[in-house]
Design a protein around this nucleic acid. Structure first.
Ligand code: MN
Ligand code: MN
Ligand code: ZN
Ligand code: ZN
Lengths: 144, 144
DNA sequence: GGCGCAAATGCTACTATGTTGCAAAACCAC
DNA sequence: GTGGTTTTGCAACATAGTAGCATTTGCGCC
């Protein structure tokens, strides 16, 4: 049970970042790793509650912030003023996202690089490019 | 003074959309047309106040919504949970944006097309692509 | 296993941004 | 100018996130 060699994927990510192994961090990462789409603070909180994991709203905010600062998760500002969080299961967070304008879901398009060939006006220093594709997801676009 | 043939740029945009010519709409458009960057609701409100144009917070929200719905202005969700508004002075709003991660300013990169050559997973219907470049603006990146 | 202490948590209160409902005022077609 | 529709102003409300601080917890060390 206390086998020190077998860390769950979530635990490995935390350990790799030298962070403390807290209940909330592991649970949140489990949720994010299992998620098909990026999730809001509220959705993650609901998932924790379902699992019976007691937690505070503020703690969840801080946990998510830590995950982002640590480079484990990434955060996106949505049209609905809610930030959405996700983990890239493979490699770094270098991919585009698809935002369904009907249901609001945001899915990571891993393996889909922006490939931005832009020449910026002078003086601007490019750090990274963020590409969000808008449209209808498979579920919402069914009868069109 | 009441020369019905000479509309200001702002007034022309409103007229072209068949909207009522209200003081707030004209003033807001003037502000947006003169702006170098996308502006938040608050920044626009401050600009109106400076010009001595009395207005209500809610009216400004509704005016901005109307401008966006009418296709005159565009709106972006920022990292700081504030929406930013701008008008494309030439052509439709089909361009990338640059977000300075240091000062938070957002500038429109008119004439800079995403040129997204992506093949989406099956079922996703693409409507439009939104490209945001992150980095440092000329002002913030000076001594780097 | 227990100690000590920094890091994380849980509370409460607070801020910032945007929304709703409704009566009064302003546009503008006539 | 008048009338009817749109827009405005106000007050109350909603949502997402933040700050301060006392308490608890993880974990390096013995
Ligand atoms: Mn992602
Ligand atoms: Mn723009
Ligand atoms: Zn959808
Ligand atoms: Zn800057």
């Amino acid at each position: 049970m206390s086998d020190h060699t077998s860390l769950s994927p979530a635990e490995s990510l935390i350990a790799a970042r030298g962070g403390r192994m807290t209940r909330t961090r592991v649970a949140v990462l489990d949720v994010l790793l299992a998620a098909e789409q990026s999730l809001t603070h509220d959705e993650i909180g609901a998932a924790l509650a379902e699992q019976g994991i007691k937690h505070d709203r503020v703690t969840l905010y801080r946990t998510l912030d830590w995950l982002v600062e640590s480079g484990v998760a990434h955060k996106m500002a949505g049209e609905d003023r809610a930030r959405r969080f996700g983990v890239a299961t493979s490699g770094p967070h270098e991919h585009a996202h698809f935002h369904c304008d009907r249901c609001g879901k945001v899915v990571c398009l891993e393996g889909l690089q922006p490939a931005v060939a832009v020449n910026l006006p002078g003086g601007y220093q490019l750090d990274r490019a963020e590409l969000v594709l808008h449209g209808a997801c498979p579920t919402c676009g069914k009868g069109t």
